[in-house]
Structures are given as structure tokens and as C-alpha cells.
């Protein structure tokens, strides 16, 4: 197991590892906090709409496929294919943010704010921080699409897969483990 075996730039793997640790720390803190008020946390969690989270998972993993195809196209010298993949992946990110916006609007209209219950503090902080990464990723993918060098496309795709990875890890504790 050598560092040279890692695909892509080492700094991207440091970033991916760091982000996993940050979100894992947040989820662990939420899970520990849940022990102090299991009924309150379960009641609060039941107010969330898991269908939107499931829809967003489909959107995000599909955009991940487009990012992966863009990376493959760029590696093969197909800049047009790479650009198309990047833009489709970015579009997926925009759809994710739109669905998340609808979900937040429903939450707020139901009286769910960040200080309504400690569960919602974790919910808004973790999903909001993740959504900020999605927004940054959309900008990154669109920027890389302007200049589709293989290394840049690979770095953009890696960032996008990290966003995808974090989402599948935080989803069960936030939405499903009641």
C-alpha cells in the first residue's frame, strides 16, 4: 500500500479524509446527544420528510455517474464528452440544492427552526454544511468545464464524489435511525 497507488492528487485524498472526519464527528456528537432525550429526538426526526432525502440520494449518485464519465472522457482526450459530463453533474447538484430548498421551506413553514430542538440544530448544521459543499461543487464543476484538462477534471470529479460519499454516510443517522 503506497501513496503512489492512490488515484489522483494526494491533497484531494487529504481533503476527502478530513471531510469524512468532520461529518463523522458531527454525527457522533448528534448520536451521543440523542441519549439525553431519545423520545424528543425521535419525535423531531419524525417531522422530517425522508422521501426528499431519498430523491436527493438518487440525484446525487446519478450526478456522480456523470462526473465519473467526465473524468473518463477527459483521460481519453474527449474534451467535449468531459464538458458534457461535468455540466450534467453540476445540473444534478443544482437539482439537489433545489430539492433541499423545498425541504427547508417545508420545515420552516411547519415551525421547524434551528433552535426548535437540539436534533434540528444538528440537522440544519450538518445538512446545511453539506449543501454548502454541494454549492461549492457546482461552481467547481462549472469552472473545470471551461478548461477540461484531465488533471482538473479528475480533481473536480473527486470533490464531487466526496460530496456524494458524505451524503450517503450522514443520511441514515439524520433521517432513518429513529
Amino acid at each position: 500500500m503506497d501513496l503512489e497507488d492512490l488515484p489522483g492528487e494526494l491533497i484531494m485524498w487529504i481533503l476527502i479524509g478530513s471531510e469524512i472526519l468532520v461529518f463523522a464527528a458531527g454525527i457522533t456528537a448528534m448520536s451521543a446527544m440523542r441519549l439525553t432525550d431519545p423520545t424528543g429526538f425521535a419525535d423531531a426526526q419524525a417531522m422530517l420528510d425522508g422521501r426528499m432525502a431519498a430523491l436527493n440520494t438518487v440525484v446525487l449518485v446519478t450526478s456522480g455517474l456523470f462526473a465519473a464519465r467526465a473524468e473518463r472522457a477527459a483521460a481519453g482526450g474527449d474534451r467535449r464528452g468531459a464538458r458534457r459530463g461535468l455540466m450534467l453533474a453540476a445540473l444534478g447538484g443544482a437539482v439537489f440544492l433545489a430539492v433541499k430548498g423545498v425541504e427547508y421551506a417545508h420545515d420552516l413553514s411547519a415551525g421547524i427552526g434551528i433552535d426548535a430542538h437540539p436534533f434540528f440544530t444538528f440537522y440544519f448544521l450538518l445538512t446545511g454544511f453539506h449543501a454548502a459543499h454541494v454549492a461549492a461543487g457546482v461552481v467547481l464543476l462549472a469552472t473545470v468545464a471551461i478548461r477540461t484538462t484531465p488533471d482538473a477534471v479528475q480533481a473536480g470529479a473527486m470533490f464531487w464524489h466526496m460530496v456524494d460519499l458524505v451524503w450517503v454516510l450522514i443520511l441514515p443517522p439524520i433521517y432513518l435511525l429513529g
Binding site: 500500500m1 497507488d5 488515484p7 489522483g8 476527502i16 470529479a157 473527486m158
Partner: peptide, 9 residues
Amino acid sequence: FLHLDRAPG
């Protein structure tokens, strides 16, 4: 997607 299948360990 991140190709770790090809990175032993």
C-alpha cells in the same frame, strides 16, 4: 467512482 478498487490496500 474514486477508483480505490485499483489501489491495493
